[in-house]
Design a protein around this nucleic acid. Structure first.
Length: 260
DNA sequence: GGTCGCCTGGTA
DNA sequence: TACCAGGCGACC
């Protein structure tokens, strides 16, 4: 369940149990993962110590004591399950990381789209990523530059990790609602005040995602403002929330608050 | 920019 | 059965 807040949480969970521990064994259970990493490479990880778990946008990087690193991307549905080696494997377990101390971290992913790669020491892959949405680099000015040549609708552009790193389909819709910007507004035509509103709105939506993850909070606050709520009333104006498709993805928005 | 493929599961 | 799913790289 991975956009920025979810990946942040997952990385923290992994960090807590894995940093400073030695790898007893890694097993890849799904053919798609086995295709990505050779059996030899997997075996070579045994005995390595995990020295850090870094996370940037939706990317996670497990740094080993020999300088190599294991990169994990959850794609649509990945997550970490943390337990001990005696536990029964969780449903949809795709890879298992067993630690010397008996801990076990399992990559669970019903859709099996997650990716896992091993990089040699010093290899600096990293997709081209825009600023972290909470950093001071992420400003209305930055958006001005990033959106200048984008003549398409703003919503699909927000999914471009080079514009802002970590925003996905849900929070793009939520942020646009928050900023009262139509998902179909032409990206390059957003005024400076609207870009400023969007910067703030992205932070608000993501922060809400950070806080609103527990079942209690979800029940208390409701899930999202517009995402997955087609046909329901806009929490701000009461109009009926609509679903449209942009770039092959669902977009939810309020036609009144977010008029063009 | 839009569409497809990767994979599997949940739901109408 | 058909459609949908919080991502993204490859393709036109």
């Amino acid at each position: 369940m991975p956009e920025l807040p979810e990946v942040e949480r997952a990385a923290r969970r992994l960090r807590r149990v894995a940093v400073g521990r030695q790898i007893a064994r890694i097993e890849l259970l799904h053919p798609a993962l086995q295709r990505q990493v050779s059996a030899l490479d997997v075996a070579s990880l045994t005995g390595c110590t995990i020295v850090a778990v870094e996370q940037q946008a939706k990317h996670q990087r497990v740094v080993l004591n020999d300088g190599r690193s294991m990169h994990v991307h959850f794609r649509m549905a990945g997550d970490w399950d943390v337990g001990i080696s005696d536990d029964a494997l969780p449903r949809h377990a795709r890879a298992v990381l067993s630690l010397e101390d008996g801990g076990r971290v399992t990559l669970v992913d019903p859709r099996a789209l997650s990716t896992l790669q091993i990089f040699a020491a010093g290899a600096i892959p990293k997709a081209r990523l825009g600023p972290n949405p909470f950093s001071k680099q992420f400003t209305a000015d930055w958006l001005g530059t990033a959106l200048k040549r984008r003549r398409g609708a703003i919503k699909p552009v927000l999914l471009d990790q080079g514009v802002v790193a970590g925003v996905g389909n849900i929070y793009a819709a939520e942020a646009l609602w928050e900023a009262r910007i139509s998902p179909r507004a032409i990206a390059s035509k957003l005024s400076a005040p609207r870009r400023l509103a969007l910067v703030g709105a992205i932070r608000i939506a993501l922060r809400r995602g950070r806080g609103t993850r527990s079942r209690y909070n979800e029940a208390f606050e409701g899930r999202f403002r517009v995402y997955d709520r087609a046909g329901e009333a806009c929490p701000r104006c009461g109009s009926t929330i609509r679903r449209i498709v942009q770039a092959g993805r669902s977009t939810y928005y309020c036609p009144r608050c977010q008029a063009r």
